[in-house]
Nucleic acid binder design. Structure first.
Lengths: 228, 228
DNA sequence: GTCTATAAGAAGATAGAC
DNA sequence: GTCTATCTTCTTATAGAC
């Protein structure tokens, strides 16, 4: 006991736990919650199903850990209130680029969002709450943009409509992208966001040219190379 | 044999088959392909798993039958080439209203679209092919709209971008709607479509007021009542 | 055409050795 | 902290009675 080099008794345990969450995240993203068995996750991290349950008790607890990790990663990538007004929205281009490098994250979110149409799905409440949170967060930032004079004024109803439309477009593009990874997700979104910002009357809309093609159809334009 | 009243020997068989497909469609939409066991589907239609497999042989064959039925229902609702140019896009408002009355259809499509991010998923090829088909179909109709002088000209790349953005918005709104059915899907989409058509320079964009609120928050505005 | 019975395997979860 | 072994239940699928 006195000879171990780690400073805390739980140090390796914490690391192992993180490895399990990462593996579970990947497998659940690919196969869905129901399709991701503890054996499959265990194989990915080199452990038996019993070993996993020593750490998390139940499969549902593991899902919750995966969701928490997803939130943590997203926040680390895009800290809340790091940008206000229009800057809040332009930062989503970086988020899309981040997603292209970590496909599992968005696969997981979309799979759970769709699966959770079942009211008895363990992630149902989490998904619903998250949708509500990002819409109200978006409306708040759009209001900031108006207050700061970055964009033209609009009604509250119009703001909710615009925010819902923008977030819907992001999710829908991600859905197209996981069906065909040749789609340049970040570039496509960047072009569409520019159109939206221009329509809102943003004066500092980023100057971005229309990408060569949304799909890299020609073999000499390997858009898929951007992925990890 | 000579006494039965049905005209063909397979009449009841065909009806039963249709009932199974309908039940399987509902259960798969709610639980995903992996989560929808033959036992669960059998209970929904009053049959044992063995009975189901008498009709379809394997679970995967049943999924194929469900996908074919999905296509058939969608086509019946919105016949191909029934509207060209801008009319093609405005008809999507009707499609959204239809989806609100038949939630299972869109739940199934979204669940499978997300699940099928796994390359080994049996519906992977079907989902990918469908995404490609509707994008090229949309671009074709947008081109028609330009040719007919309904909207301002735009480049081929821009057309693909606009179509991808519009379809992404539709899928994303549907994702928001299954997470919170209080959202008035058709009205929200109608308002957003009007904005897009106006931007395209459509002269006959439908005159629709912004809905009272995208979410019927007040108890006296039961937006959910529109559902079946 | 649907059933019961059953196979062969995988699922989540528990007990206890080391 | 991870293992093996085991339990119970559930999975898809087959065989054969009615």
């Amino acid at each position: 006991m006195a000879t171990h080099t780690s400073r805390g008794p739980y140090k390796t345990g914490v690391r192992r736990r993180a490895e399990i969450v990462a593996a579970a995240s990947t497998v659940m993203a690919r196969r869905g919650y129901a399709g991701a068995s503890l054996r499959l996750i265990g194989e990915a991290v080199g452990m038996t199903p019993a070993g996993l349950l020593r750490h998390f008790g139940t499969k549902e607890n593991l899902l919750i850990a995966v969701l928490d990790d997803w939130v943590e990663q997203t926040i680390r990538m895009r800290p809340p209130s790091s940008a206000t007004g229009i800057g809040y929205f332009t930062r989503f281009v970086d988020l899309m680029r981040y997603h292209m490098l970590h496909p599992g994250l968005i696969e997981l979110f979309l799979t759970l969002s769709a699966e959770a149409s079942d009211p008895s799905h363990p992630a149902r409440a989490w998904v619903t709450a998250r949708h509500q949170r990002i819409v109200s967060e978006g409306v708040e930032q759009l209001r900031n943009a108006v207050t700061n004079g970055e964009i033209a004024p609009m009604s509250d109803r119009r703001m909710e409509l615009e925010v819902r439309g923008l977030f819907a477009m992001m999710d829908g593009l991600e859905l197209q992208w996981i069906a065909d990874p040749r789609l340049d997700l970040a570039a496509t979104f960047e072009s569409l966001l520019e159109i939206v910002l221009r329509r809102w009357g943003a004066t500092d809309a980023p100057q971005i040219g229309t990408p060569e093609s949304a799909i890299g159809g020609e073999p000499d334009v390997p858009a898929a190379a951007v992925r990890a």
